[in-house]
């Protein structure tokens, strides 16, 4: 088995863990972490399968860089929303108390 395929299989496993976490976990922070695991899995597949005859192909590397930027933006938005949701939850608890 080539190193590239090994990376790709590891990536597929990470992707599956991430999807499971995203669906099964209810806490927003865990969901956000799961999304990042899922994204890293997809990037690993992209880089792993992108190797031709043992040499690295620059195109998937560039795509993964773009993908990382996108997923950082998504993570930031998700964290901001989760925090906002928590603040609303606290307000409600105070009102109830």
């Amino acid at each position: 088995m080539s190193a590239g395929l090994l990376y790709a299989l590891a990536g597929a496993a990470l992707f599956a863990f991430g999807v499971a976490g995203l669906i099964l976990r209810s806490h927003p922070l865990r969901k956000i972490l799961a999304f990042n695991v899922m994204g890293s899995g997809a990037f690993l597949v992209l880089v792993g399968l992108g190797q031709r005859d043992g040499t690295a192909d620059p195109v998937p590397q560039a795509m993964v860089l773009t993908g990382i930027v996108v997923s950082i933006a998504a993570t930031a938005l998700a964290l901001a929303l989760a925090r906002r949701q928590r603040e609303h939850g606290n307000d409600k608890e105070e009102r109830d108390a």
Binding site: G11, F15, L46, L49
Partner: peptide, 13 residues
């Protein structure tokens, strides 16, 4: 995410 994994497989193939 699912879409991106599909893209990765297409590129790999």
């Amino acid at each position: 995410g699912a879409y991106l994994l599909g893209v990765a497989l297409l590129y790999g193939a």
